[in-house]
Write a protein that binds this DNA or RNA. Structure first.
Lengths: 198, 198, 198, 198
DNA sequence: GGGTAAGCGAGACGGTACGTCCGGTCTTACC
DNA sequence: GGTAAGACCGGACGTACCGTCTCGCTTACCC
């Protein structure tokens, strides 16, 4: 820091982006996806419901999925926890318990499923979704695993890289394929499988 | 014989379904999804490419995803193996190795990702996809796990039900989220994690 | 020649045309045009309602208008009267009065309007409609006018050829353009205009 | 001034209707009906030929017949003459001569036949066609007849109301049923029949 | 404080695909 | 060979949204 030369906003002329519109658009998107589902959600519908013009949406978001991703961030607490409980099993349990909180809200789950779906179909959104959502969670878990590794607390199997695959794999598989809940039993099971010395 | 065995098809009147059209439609769907991607795939395009009328497609398939699911079945060997190697680790290794064969073909992977995506967005297709694709694979793995259980060969963790979650979870997570390959190393890792007595 | 060798029906092999189907088709056409109007009338609808196959209709009639023309002939008395009352005004009055009977039935009028419309749009049907319907009525009126001419009973205006134009012109114009009824007053008016010596 | 004069166009927001598209659509409709006939004319075809979107057509016209009616108005001089020659026969002759000018153009006749046909089949268009086309011509002739009536120039037969029925009846009957031309002989004949004192 | 540069709601525009309807043809099994 | 049933290819329907493009207007900064 020190020098303040870099001005992030070069003080451009013209009207400022309307925060009111932004809020209204995100709120409308959230409401509508709950009412008509992701397939029935349209930019046109969001514009009508929010009282915004279509152009205003297209100006700031590349697709309806991006709107929804922003809406999710505005609504749900997407903060990624990196607990420090002193032991690998403890950290893991805390991380999973905190992460699964998101899965409590049925609407949030629906949106997450839709976003993951869109990420498959629309490659550019997939890029953004992976970078801004999936990757962050992987990295948080990575911190925990690295810490355990340094501590000599990590079992030989699975490999450190595979831990994330298993954790997020099971979570997403339940969301996308079976619909089983993300409950405390799953936390226990995962901790037992991943943190027990074999 | 001599007895009138009950005929399952009671000789309905009218023209028979054209097998040629069916084949042409499935082939066109496969080609097109490779050329333009799932998002660019349209019923209209399939009809044009295959030389069929749109109505003929709508008569037999409820959505483009269903066409693709059939096309996949016609093209790729979707047979689900239930190996019997005499030991749990052996069975698991054989099952995984065989299953991962599918993942060799880049086109097949693309289609699978699209179908899983569609299953999130279109609930009715989701039902069909789960029943005709996902569930069968779970059941095959279930047989292996049950056999190991009877044999007293099964570790205490993870629970038998969670084995499938972990296996298919990791597989789908790699397909959908990270793009990592389904290789022999993953087989080893999974076998080690799931079949080692802790 | 002179001998009766030519058999009009050469006793062809195969099943005879089903009179029952013919009746059912004509009846269905009549019912349907009353229920859904000419625009909503379809060959498919007639087939379904009558219990006939589409092919059976296409085998015997070139278009839905032809079916309707046959149905009209079967239902309404399309006999064209050529009265002989001894005088031109008397013949004319009798001819008009008899002709206007058809116009009593609202359904018949609707069908006639539709057929005249179809005759404009479908040239081949137009040919048939003119020959089998319009021309016959012109000829009947022609007989009356010729007879008056021979009798020296015909006014100088309008010309004999124009009489039919005026009579049928007024009738069709009322049917197609204004919807005014074909009543006794119109008969009087036409007789006065066409049969009065100027 | 100072008073706020009522503004007829209250300055609505949004993009203005494209006059270029309107022209292109009418031109395309005119061309196409000449090439493929009214039965072969489709909204889709008009859209393609004109380079407009289908929605743009549907936004401004309820049916292809309405497009054609506008196209006719834009192309042909649909001005309805009300001559004043000083005498009933003179007025009538002038009106008929002027009116028959339209009938010179074969394309215009084809369109008029199609529109009259559509008016039979599509009740809502019929309403519009009668009001915007047929009724205006009746009223123009009505002015002429009223003037003659005031002048004491009108024969007792036919009744004033029937004059229009006969004039337009003969004209339309020739267009729709016989195809005879609207020539000077017909003018003479009609004037003689309608304007001679009996 | 006038000029100019966005942003805004509104809505028309060229496109594209939807899912449906029907036309006219054909195949099939029966009679 | 006629018939009911029904699948087939084709093509237009009218609708829904897409993403873009004017419009007239409302801010905001800049000289």
């Amino acid at each position: 820091m020190g020098t303040v030369t870099d001005q992030p906003t070069p003080a451009r002329p013209g009207r400022k982006r309307s925060e009111a519109s932004r809020q209204a658009i995100l709120a409308a998107a959230t409401e509508l996806v709950g009412e008509v589902g992701y397939a029935g959600l349209t930019i046109e519908g969001i514009a009508t419901r929010s009282g915004a013009g279509k152009q205003t949406i297209y100006r700031w978001w590349p697709s309806k999925a991006d709107v929804l991703l922003d809406a999710l961030a505005a609504k749900a607490d997407l903060h990624v926890p990196i607990p420090d409980e002193g032991s690998y099993p403890g950290d893991l349990r805390a991380f999973l318990t905190a992460s699964f909180m998101l899965g409590r809200n049925r609407h949030v789950i629906e949106v997450l499923r839709a976003l993951m779906a869109e990420a498959q179909i629309n490659a550019e959104f997939g890029e953004r979704f992976r970078a801004s959502f999936l990757q962050r969670r992987r990295e948080a878990l990575g911190v925990i695993v690295d810490r355990a590794h340094a501590r000599g607390d990590l079992p030989s199997t699975p490999t450190s890289g595979t831990v994330a695959d298993i954790v997020f794999g099971v979570v997403w598989y339940r969301l996308l394929a079976t619909g089983q809940p993300l409950d405390q039993r799953l936390v226990d099971e995962l901790v037992a499988t991943l943190a027990s010395r074999s």
